[in-house]
Design a protein around this nucleic acid. Structure first.
Lengths: 130, 130
DNA sequence: GTTGGTACTTTCTAATAGTTAGTGCATTCT
DNA sequence: AGAATGCACTAACTATTAGAAAGTACCAAC
């Protein structure tokens, strides 16, 4: 985006383009999984944390905040004790999540192929053959 | 994947599932961009580095190695001086890249909406309103 | 001679992820 | 009574990874 003319054409390939930033959030380790979970329906904070195995409260809170700021996730607060916060996808978030879900389904569906590739790669590189 | 029965059903939501690892590689900051660039055609190392603004040699080499190991990227070496290495997508890599490209096109296409959302978020949270 | 090209690897520094404890109220259990 | 659990985060500290910069060896061009 150093070329002013490029400002008019968003490109994730350009470091400073806003689309790079949102792509980084959407496809971040936890962002993608949060969006994919929310694709199945809205979640409260701890339910979402239980759904996405391995994410810490800190990383989840941070991720949801970024996604909310990007306009992909909606955060609705009820002033109850204990607090009750519900996360759901905005229309744009739903569109992004649908694309992510397709990618995820593909990778899950072809995991056998990936495993075979990894085994072959590790065999070929065990003796530093390269 | 702690439940043996779950071994039969790949899920990116399970921390130890192989599909989680490959999703992390594919949607990593540099992995996604490398796949998207290779979607447009094969690249040699430095050409790819110039295409993906902001990636270091180190991160690119590391990323391509992971993608190669997952069976998504093919690395072809010609024993020339200087060395000549060409990267291209495998059939599985091409399928994943196509999905990624759809997601990227969506985010690039809606970047105005993202910018507006960010502006609104920042306004609402400037005084710590939340 | 210097500079640039090739595709990485190595070493050190900077940044972020991750771990753990904390907040304050309510409910349930011992 | 105290302890544990729930809620949704935040703060402080530690661990890990990203990133910056230099290095490798050969060739070609200036």
């Amino acid at each position: 985006m150093s070329d002013p003319a490029d400002d008019l054409i968003p490109s994730v390939f350009a470091r400073d383009c806003a689309s790079r930033g949102v792509l980084t959030n959407v496809t971040g380790k936890w962002g993608g999984l949060a969006l994919a979970a929310l694709h199945d329906g809205s979640y409260r904070f701890n339910a979402l944390r239980r759904r996405v195995d391995g994410v810490s409260e800190k990383m989840l809170a941070q991720t949801l905040q970024a996604l909310e700021r990007d306009g992909l996730v909606r955060r609705e607060v009820q002033a109850t004790i204990p607090p009750r916060v519900e996360y759901s996808l905005t229309p744009l978030g739903a569109r992004a999540a649908a694309k992510l879900k397709e990618l995820i389904d593909l990778l899950e569906g072809e995991i056998g192929q990936v495993r075979a590739a990894r085994a072959e790669y590790d065999r070929d590189h065990a003796a530093g053959v390269r």
